[in-house]
């Protein structure tokens, strides 16, 4: 079937984010990260879509398709595929997957404009109702075996409002964390392997791949905070890992609840602006910083308050489950 048999193909409505005021509606562009999201803007209701696919006209991957089961606006570097009749989420995913298999045809700057896109043929099972050919959604559903909603983590009920801390105190980072540097310089020399490898990147929890540990490299246990010396990004690691030398590894000086580690990561991330202009955050410098932490009436670091704030978030049960089953 051709795309236009299943969808009305529309071009996105906005040329540049500079046309829009900040707001609450996601805006989708042709980028290949973060599901194409470029920010949240004030988008008029009439120019929003929901439960549709977007397909990149250009960018790094023309034809890259993404599913958006929420209300969104679109830039004009993507097409919005609006189903002509209601389609199941799983069908939309399937169509997106088929399109994504074809992105190689549009590499090297060969763009995929509306006209081309509308006539792309999809290999899908069809059924015939009367004289009309229709996509066989049942067959697609059987291929997957699961509905989309089963992929979405369950959101916990809010634990209610948490009272503010008793007070705040600036605490030298080394009072609560032991810090050390990663062990090796280059990942280019490593063979693919089993160890999650942390480097300076700001994305993907700092993970750059899975490699074998080079000679002399320590394998760090779960429950450490890693900090990129380049960007200052802090992540809690829930699996064992190895790390490059542009990463600082922070080990709690005394046992801390896992939730409190996430609180510390948040507080470290608040300081990223201090390291945003190529002012690297080396071990010595990092060791001299202070972060503000909630304290009890007696001035002790209030671990319980830190943990409560984290445990009160919507998806904490997922993390707790992951902690319980550390690989």
């Amino acid at each position: 079937m051709e795309i236009e048999q299943l969808f009305t193909v529309k071009s996105g409505d906005f040329h540049a984010t500079s046309e829009l005021d900040a707001g609450g509606t996601p805006l989708i562009s042709c980028g290949d990260t973060n599901n194409g999201l470029v920010g949240y803007f004030d988008i008029p209701e009439g120019k929003t879509y929901c439960h549709c696919l977007t397909v990149a006209y250009n960018g790094s991957w023309p034809l890259l398709a993404k599913f958006h089961p929420y209300r969104f606006g679109a830039k004009d570097d993507v097409a919005v595929l609006v189903p002509r009749t209601q389609l199941r989420d799983v069908t939309l995913f399937y169509v997106a997957a088929l399109l994504n298999r074809m992105t190689w045809r549009y590499s090297y700057g060969r763009k995929c404009f509306k006209e081309k896109l509308s006539h792309i043929r999809l290999s899908v099972s069809v059924t015939t109702v009367g004289d009309e050919e229709q996509i066989d959604e049942e067959a697609i559903a059987q291929l997957f075996g699961r509905e989309f909603c089963s992929f979405i983590p369950e959101k916990a009920a809010s634990g209610g409002c948490v009272a503010g801390p008793n007070g705040w105190r600036a605490v030298p980072i080394v009072e609560i964390l032991e810090i050390e540097r990663g062990d090796f310089h280059s990942i280019a020399a490593l063979d693919p392997g089993e160890f999650m490898t942390i480097s300076r990147t700001s994305d993907n929890n700092g993970v750059v791949g899975y490699f074998t540990a080079p000679e002399g490299a320590r394998v760090h246990p779960p429950g450490r905070i890693t900090v990129s010396t380049v960007s200052g990004d802090a992540f809690v690691q829930l699996d064992k890992f190895i790390a490059t030398d542009n990463v600082i590894i922070c080990k709690p000086r005394r046992p801390l609840p896992q939730a409190a580690l996430f609180f510390l990561a948040f507080m470290l991330n608040r300081q990223k602006w201090r390291y945003s202009y190529g002012r690297q955050c080396y071990k010595t410098k990092f060791g001299s910083i202070e972060i503000v932490l909630p304290v009890t009436e007696t001035g002790e670091i209030d671990e319980a308050h830190m943990s409560t704030l984290v445990e009160n978030t919507s998806y904490w049960p997922i993390i707790r489950g992951a902690v319980a089953t550390n690989r």
Binding site: F151, P153, E154, M196, N204, N205, V207, F235, V236, L238, D239, F262, V310, T313, S314, Y315, W316, P317, I318, I319, R320, G321, A322, A324, T325, R327
Partner: peptide, 23 residues
């Protein structure tokens, strides 16, 4: 927490994921 959950979904195998959901 959302970023960490998103990472877990990307990084972990489906079997692990089932365990987490039933954790």
């Amino acid at each position: 927490i959302r970023d960490s959950v998103a990472f877990l979904i990307r990084a972990r195998k489906e079997d692990d994921w089932e365990v987490h959901r039933n954790g």
